[in-house]
Design a protein around this nucleic acid. Structure first.
Lengths: 141, 141
DNA sequence: TTGCGTGCAAAGGTTTTGCATGGCA
DNA sequence: TGCCATGCAAAACCTTTGCACGCAA
């Protein structure tokens, strides 16, 4: 448990990546988003490196990984060292237009609590996605 | 809204597939499992057909689809008969033991209403699966 | 000098799609 | 006959892996 001696060398890519992640705050991003960000600044970081670094950070608990579905890339989010679960939220995905809504709402936290206390079920918000229709698509229908 | 006229023709493949699904009961399976099952009986059904049929059944709410992780195929489970169709309910899937819970609960209906009224999002309970830990697995942990 | 981290390209696996053919009504 | 469903193969997609090279310590 207490032996997290993995990253022995510091590299420029690690540093660049980490500072980018921190700047994102609670915003999600995919591995490809990261690559594009640096590419637009004429900095090239291989996608394999990005995946490898993100995987490491996920293992260390510094980054959260969200599983959306088979058709979209995994999303990542940097979590502050101080309170990792501060930014807990749920995902809503529109079945029609595919938009991913990122919802922080006290009522949903209530539901989470309700399911735990009354039904004994503890929801994992990192994997759970609520499917339905977003506001725009509902109006169009 | 009321025009769900999709599957106009009945085919042998549809019939074979559906009878297989029903026999699985609460066991879940992948598209590839289905293909192999028929292949072992010298019946060949194209994998594309299996995906297309499953997708249709998911849309109709007769089959639930689970997303385990990025590296494994999606799992499906026939639920039409075990689902209380008269009552709106949600599905909870235990990430550890895999049990599927059908949950009818007034508070969840409240949530549905809340999301509709406050956030403009209308959840589709057929499609949505809440992932987490069931009561038994929580106690073991 | 040692050996980890990187980058490239290729591989891996699942799911979708284009198009011609077959089969239901 | 008209049109949907099927099957095949190819494509699309995200992610991982093998290997040679560069760079940190």
């Amino acid at each position: 448990m207490g032996n997290v001696v993995k990253s022995t060398y510091k590299t420029k890519q690690q540093e660049l990546l980490l500072s980018y992640l921190k700047k994102q705050g609670s915003v999600h991003f995919t591995a490809e988003d990261v690559r594009r960000h640096f590419a637009s600044k004429e900095i090239s970081i291989g996608i394999a490196t990005i995946y490898r670094q993100l995987e490491k950070l996920v293992a260390e608990g510094k980054v959260q990984k969200y599983f959306i579905d088979e058709h979209s890339a995994a999303c990542f989010q940097y979590v502050a060292e101080s309170c990792p679960h501060d930014e807990e939220h749920f995902h809503l995905k529109c079945e029609k237009c595919g938009v991913l809504v990122h919802l922080e709402c006290d009522e949903l936290s209530e539901i989470k609590k309700h399911l735990e206390e009354e039904h004994g079920f503890s929801i994992n918000p990192f994997r759970t996605v609520l499917y339905g229709l977003c506001e725009k698509c509902r109006k169009l229908a």
